[in-house]
């Protein structure tokens, strides 16, 4: 049975899509069967990151009844990695916003895809904040990763996230991103864990080379030896059952 990992952040620009796409590539490179689903219908990113053709079927096409979810999953590199883009040129945002869709189609899509491709890991990227796709993705999670920027830890939304995540029975973990050089990791970890009530799975440094890629290439492929890649691997080892299991129990608060 596939393990479902969901990344979430209260605000945009925390680097969750970057982290998740790199995790997907790294897990697949180890020989596991992985699907990465972009549930961010409002502002999709993963299709560009993986260089997908704009005419390909997407999650939105599936929700609008134009294709089945199996047809919206495209095999990308490395082998064993399948990508479901949130929305491509074939469907407009206005259309799905106007007509809506049966929200039960999302968990059904996750389950069917896991079954169809015999997946080990299912990774779900989400829109920042709370909308139906994000809440549904979170409700489907075995592990929920809350991504928070090092300079914006004490957000007003933290209590809201904590309350919502508290209703879920899945494992929760924190990732602090864009940590500036020279930061005190213990202090950052402590602040984040107090705010969100979850253990820290990793602290990602701010990396200028990432910005240079302009969101059009996977960092792991461009800079395989970079310390950021090491940190991605560490997060995977904490979260994914594919590696030796390590607990990420919530910190005492």
């Amino acid at each position: 049975m596939a393990q479902t990992i969901v990344v979430y952040s209260h605000r945009g620009g925390t680097g969750k899509s970057t982290m998740l796409s790199n995790m997907a590539v790294l897990i697949a490179a180890e020989g596991h069967r992985v699907a990465l689903i972009d549930t961010d219908i409002q502002s999709p990113t993963l299709d560009t990151l993986f260089g997908l053709d704009p005419g390909e079927c997407s999650l939105t096409d599936y929700l609008l009844g134009r294709c089945e979810i199996e047809h919206a999953a495209h095999e990308v590199q490395p082998p064993g990695l399948f990508l479901v883009p949130a929305r491509t040129a074939t469907s407009s945002l206005a259309e799905i916003m106007a007509t809506g869709y049966d929200v039960g189609l999302l968990p059904e899509a996750f389950a069917r895809l896991a079954d169809h491709h015999d997946l080990d890991v299912l990774l779900l990227d989400t829109h920042a904040g709370l909308n139906n796709e994000t809440v549904t993705a979170m409700a489907s999670a075995d592990s929920l990763v809350i991504v928070v920027r090092a300079d914006r830890i004490d957000l007003a939304g933290a209590a809201e996230i904590r309350a919502l995540a508290g209703r879920l029975t899945c494992r929760r973990a924190l990732v602090v991103s864009m940590a500036p050089e020279g930061i005190d990791p213990d202090r950052v970890r402590g602040r984040a864990e107090r705010a969100y009530g979850a253990a820290t799975a990793g602290i990602l440094p701010y990396v200028a080379e990432l910005a240079e890629l302009g969101g059009e290439r996977i960092f792991t492929e461009a800079h395989p030896g970079h310390s950021l890649v090491t940190e991605f691997r560490r997060i995977i080892s904490v979260l994914a059952r594919t590696e030796e299991k390590r607990s990420a129990e919530p910190a005492e608060t």
Binding site: D102, V103, G104, L105, P107, E108, A139, S140
Partner: peptide, 9 residues
């Protein structure tokens, strides 16, 4: 399950 099944809505 935490989300309605298809058709329940």
């Amino acid at each position: 399950s935490r989300v309605p099944v298809v058709g329940a809505t």
